[in-house]
Amino acid sequence: MNGVLKGKLLENDTLVQQAANNTKEQFANSPDLSLAIVFAIMDALDAHGHEQPGAELAEDPGGAEGHPVGAGAVI
């Protein structure tokens, strides 16, 4: 699954740009990275047919496009 997660993260243009322009420490502390990791894990679980813990939260109309975390939320 690590290859899937890496691929999902590499699809994120914001992360690619941050990785190129920031130090490792700055990149590791990016809220964009944290959120992208969460979404990549959720997408990977969906792709492999696993039910996500708390999947019922995705039914909440306040959620972001199938993700239980609202758009722009910081985790």
Results as ranks from 00 to 15, higher is better:
2 N>Y: 04
2 N>S: 07
2 N>D: 03
3 G>R: 05
4 V>G: 02
5 L>I: 14
5 L>Q: 11
5 L>R: 10
6 K>R: 10
6 K>Q: 14
6 K>W: 05
7 G>P: 02
7 G>T: 06
8 K>R: 12
8 K>S: 06
8 K>L: 05
9 L>P: 10
11 E>C: 00
12 N>G: 00
12 N>S: 01
13 D>W: 03
15 L>F: 02
16 V>N: 09
16 V>Y: 00
16 V>P: 01
16 V>H: 01
17 Q>K: 14
17 Q>S: 12
17 Q>I: 01
18 Q>A: 03
18 Q>E: 08
19 A>E: 02
20 A>W: 05
21 N>P: 02
21 N>L: 09
21 N>V: 12
22 N>R: 04
23 T>C: 04
23 T>N: 13
24 K>W: 14
25 E>H: 09
25 E>A: 15
25 E>Y: 06
26 Q>N: 12
26 Q>W: 06
26 Q>L: 11
27 F>S: 14
28 A>Y: 12
28 A>Q: 15
28 A>P: 15
29 N>V: 02
32 D>W: 10
32 D>G: 04
32 D>F: 10
33 L>I: 03
33 L>N: 03
34 S>E: 15
35 L>Q: 14
35 L>N: 08
37 I>V: 15
37 I>D: 00
38 V>A: 08
38 V>Y: 07
38 V>R: 06
38 V>H: 01
38 V>S: 03
39 F>S: 02
39 F>R: 14
40 A>S: 15
40 A>P: 04
40 A>N: 09
41 I>H: 02
41 I>N: 12
42 M>T: 08
42 M>H: 11
42 M>V: 07
43 D>W: 05
43 D>Y: 07
44 A>Y: 02
44 A>H: 05
45 L>V: 02
45 L>H: 03
46 D>I: 05
46 D>M: 13
47 A>E: 13
47 A>G: 12
47 A>S: 07
47 A>T: 08
48 H>P: 05
48 H>F: 10
49 G>C: 13
49 G>W: 10
49 G>P: 11
50 H>F: 12
50 H>P: 01
51 E>A: 05
51 E>K: 02
52 Q>C: 00
52 Q>M: 05
52 Q>W: 05
52 Q>A: 01
54 G>C: 02
54 G>W: 00
54 G>Y: 06
56 E>P: 00
56 E>V: 03
56 E>S: 15
57 L>T: 12
59 E>N: 12
60 D>R: 11
60 D>W: 08
61 P>I: 05
61 P>G: 09
61 P>C: 10
61 P>W: 09
63 G>E: 10
63 G>N: 13
63 G>T: 12
63 G>H: 11
63 G>C: 11
64 A>M: 12
64 A>H: 14
65 E>I: 04
65 E>W: 07
65 E>M: 08
66 G>F: 00
66 G>T: 14
68 P>N: 10
68 P>L: 00
68 P>H: 07
69 V>E: 00
70 G>T: 12
70 G>R: 13
70 G>K: 15
71 A>S: 12
72 G>A: 07
74 V>P: 09
74 V>T: 15
74 V>C: 12
